[in-house]
Design a protein around this nucleic acid. Sequence first.
DNA 1: GTAATATCATACGCGACGTATGTCAATTGG
DNA 2: CCAATTGACATACGTCGCGTATGATATTAC
Lengths: 198, 198
Amino acid sequence: MAVRTRGEMIAETRAKLLAAGRKAFGEIGYADASMDDFTGKVGLTRGALYHHFGDKRGLFEAVIAQIDAEMTVRLKARAAKMRTPWEGFIEEGIGYIEMALEPEIRRIVLRDGPAVLGDPASWPTTNGCMTAMKECLAELAEDGVIRDVDLEATARMLTGASCYAATWIANAEDPQAISDRATAAYRRLVEGLLREPQ
Amino acid sequence: MAVRTRGEMIAETRAKLLAAGRKAFGEIGYADASMDDFTGKVGLTRGALYHHFGDKRGLFEAVIAQIDAEMTVRLKARAAKMRTPWEGFIEEGIGYIEMALEPEIRRIVLRDGPAVLGDPASWPTTNGCMTAMKECLAELAEDGVIRDVDLEATARMLTGASCYAATWIANAEDPQAISDRATAAYRRLVEGLLREPQ
DNA sequence: GTAATATCATACGCGACGTATGTCAATTGG
DNA sequence: CCAATTGACATACGTCGCGTATGATATTAC
């Protein structure tokens, strides 16, 4: 069996705590997640958690950073597959809406996140998804595809629109049908930004 | 001194609890508000709270309903002052953004509300503000002012956009400047819905 | 006038959090 | 090679907040 160095053991402990917290936060929510409970499930105690993350909120921040990074990667990958920057932009917004359908993302990032950490735009991770959208808009503005708009303001509002659309979908009886409506409406909404109305 | 009937006393107790809860929720947030604390400040105990509202969450719902009703009245009043339905619609959206600048509304309705009660659209109050926006859109659609869009989906997304814009403003160093940018960008965004681009 | 009910207050138990302290292994320095 | 120190956790304890069960008081009903 491999000799495990000290550094590896520590990294493993951190990873275990992160995974356990993420699971608990995603399944029963931040407020109801007991630290004694989910640390115990991976053979640890609150002592390890306080040592590595300071407190419950610190662990939550780390979980959010992890999820946010994953989301950014996925969005970029989706957008890169499209032919034009404009289509890539649309795809990113729709991708955001669809990802928000996943219970873990909805619960942790969209629901509890703002309540526990405050404004998403000022999270330690700087919310990769929102900055990605802003960069996308900047490129479109440079190429003259969209009208002259306030990039940051527009990116923030579109992110908000996506979130609310996602919440709507997630609470619907027929999520797929609502998802179709939401993405279509989103497309219509952002098409209003185009310089040349198609 | 007026003889206070029993019914009046009860109503007064309810109102006291509602006001105390609203104040505490608005100032320190739902999670950190101690029921023993804020009920004591109006000369009552948790016993009264459990009797009238069931539990902490029940009181929170009542507080949200109260604030939401106030917001709806204010928005309607603002919109009614404008000349055209379209201007009224714009005014409602901007009004929503501006109201979200008030700490109490941001904290209770926008931040803790979704975390505690879930999807705003399915709150007991049915979120007066969102339905107001939907009605506004319906009228504009009938008059042919805006393009053919999904009313509900659009209303939800615009509400989300307003919320995120408001959060942005509220966390800025110069809220007034950001407010100007946000409202301008909002105007640009919804102008994309117009049938005739101006 | 008495029974019943509504309106609250009080007492209690439970769970969760945060801190303070302890323990053990690993590293460092001579 | 051995002591001293540091880091990585576990354990114990105090505190606080919630929910429930119980009790007291006043009003209403009959």
